[in-house]
Amino acid sequence: MALNTPQITPTKKITVRAIGEELPRGDYQRCPQCDMLFSLPEINSHQSAYCPRCQAKIRDGRDWSLTRLAAMAFTMLLLMPFAWGEPLLHIWLLGIRIDANVMQGIWQMTKQGDAITGSMVFFCVIGAPLILVTSIAYLWFGNRLGMNLRPVLLMLERLKEWVMLDIYLVGIGVASIKVQDYAHIQAGVGLFSFVALVILTTVTLSHLNVEELWERFYPQRPATRRDEKLRVCLGCHFTGYPDQRGRCPRCHIPLRLRRRHSLQKCWAALLASIVLLLPANLLPISIIYLNGGRQEDTILSGIMSLASSNIAVAGIVFIASILVPFTKVIVMFTLLLSIHFKCQQGLRTRILLLRMVTWIGRWSMLDLFVISLTMSLINRDQILAFTMGPAAFYFGAAVILTILAVEWLDSRLLWDAHESGNARFDD
Rank of each mutant, 00 (worst) to 15 (best):
E419M: 15
T201K: 12
A423Y: 15
V189N: 14
D367C: 00
D427H: 15
N379F: 02
Y168P: 06
R380S: 01
L200M: 11
T358W: 12
L149G: 07
L404H: 07
D297F: 05
A187I: 09
M164P: 01
I185E: 14
A115G: 03
E21V: 11
T374Q: 00
A269W: 03
P151W: 02
E21I: 09
L200D: 07
C31I: 00
G240V: 05
Q344R: 10
H46V: 13
A312D: 04
I339M: 07
G293W: 06
P249T: 07
Q220K: 12
Y28T: 14
W408E: 03
A423I: 07
K229Q: 09
P390R: 06
Y394H: 09
A417R: 06
A137M: 09
P81Q: 12
P151N: 02
W140R: 03
L373K: 15
V399S: 09
V102K: 01
K342T: 09
I8S: 14
R150G: 06
F369T: 03
L132D: 02
G190V: 04
R355C: 09
P284D: 06
G292C: 04
L255Q: 04
L139H: 01
G396N: 02
I330V: 13
S420T: 10
L354V: 13
A268M: 02
M388P: 03
I287P: 00
I177L: 15
C34E: 00
I330T: 13
I274T: 08
F122D: 04
S206E: 05
N44Q: 09
E86N: 06
R412C: 00
A385F: 03
R250P: 01
P52M: 04
N281Y: 04
A314E: 02
Q344C: 11
L278W: 06
T334K: 14
I185P: 00
V357I: 09
L347W: 09
R294N: 03
I287M: 07
R250S: 14
V121P: 02
R59N: 14
Q47W: 09
A272E: 00
T327A: 10
R350Y: 12
G113N: 08
L409F: 10
Y28D: 13
K111Q: 09
R226H: 13
I339L: 06
L271N: 06
P24I: 11
M147K: 03
E21M: 11
L197M: 08
N209C: 11
N44D: 15
P81A: 09
A272M: 01
Q220W: 06
T15C: 11
A49K: 04
V370N: 00
F141A: 07
L257I: 05
T204R: 01
T224F: 07
R144V: 05
D60R: 11
P219L: 07
G105A: 05
A100G: 04
K12R: 11
A2H: 12
Q47E: 08
H261D: 06
M304H: 07
D35Y: 07
S176V: 05
D181F: 01
S119H: 02
I339W: 15
Y218V: 04
F217Q: 10
L409H: 06
S376I: 13
G190W: 00
F122Q: 05
D99S: 12
L77F: 13
I274Q: 08
D367T: 00
Q186E: 11
A307L: 08
I253K: 01
M356F: 13
G85E: 11
S273P: 04
S48K: 15
G302L: 02
L282W: 10
Y289H: 04
R150D: 03
V370M: 04
C233I: 00
M109Y: 04
I167K: 10
N101I: 01
M356K: 10
F194G: 10
G361Y: 01
V152M: 01
M72P: 04
G95R: 03
E21C: 09
I285H: 00
P284F: 05
G421S: 14
